[in-house]
Design a protein around this nucleic acid. Structure first.
Length: 110
DNA sequence: GTCGTGACATCTT
DNA sequence: AAAGATGCCACGA
């Protein structure tokens, strides 16, 4: 009995994000058909570290491309991971965000 | 069981 | 056009 919550749905999409790519809350929310529920998407990421399988929350950032999640990760760990995947991140700010940005409604266009 | 807060975004005035 | 207010779901106390 899989608890199909909005969270679970977000995790599913986030796990479909390839390495070196990033997405925004609104994009995922929109993909799920709940644009205004962007807040819930963000909260899902918070618990993402407590969910199975682990979700690459470091690939999910806000609309500005800022690693706002780093606050919960406990440091710059998130930025280091992104750089490790080929994403340039400076001071919790993704560079070339337009290039690494991936839209689930486009790439994952179901 | 109820109230409030939270990795944001969108809609309205 | 910009600024302000609202909305959504889940979890914590």
């Amino acid at each position: 009995m899989t608890e199909y919550n909005f969270f679970t749905n977000v995790y599913d999409v986030a796990r479909q994000i390839p390495s070196g790519r990033v997405t925004s809350y609104g994009a995922i929310a929109s993909y799920l058909g709940a644009k205004r529920s962007s807040r819930v998407v963000g909260y899902a990421m918070q618990v993402a570290g407590s969910v199975k399988p682990p979700v690459p929350a470091h690939r999910v950032v806000n609309r500005l491309g800022q690693l706002t999640a780093a606050t919960h990760f406990g440091g710059n760990t998130m930025a280091q991971l992104l750089e490790s995947e080929g994403v340039t991140v400076i001071k919790d700010q993704i560079q070339d965000f337009d290039k690494v940005f991936l839209d689930p409604t486009v790439e994952l266009a179901l």
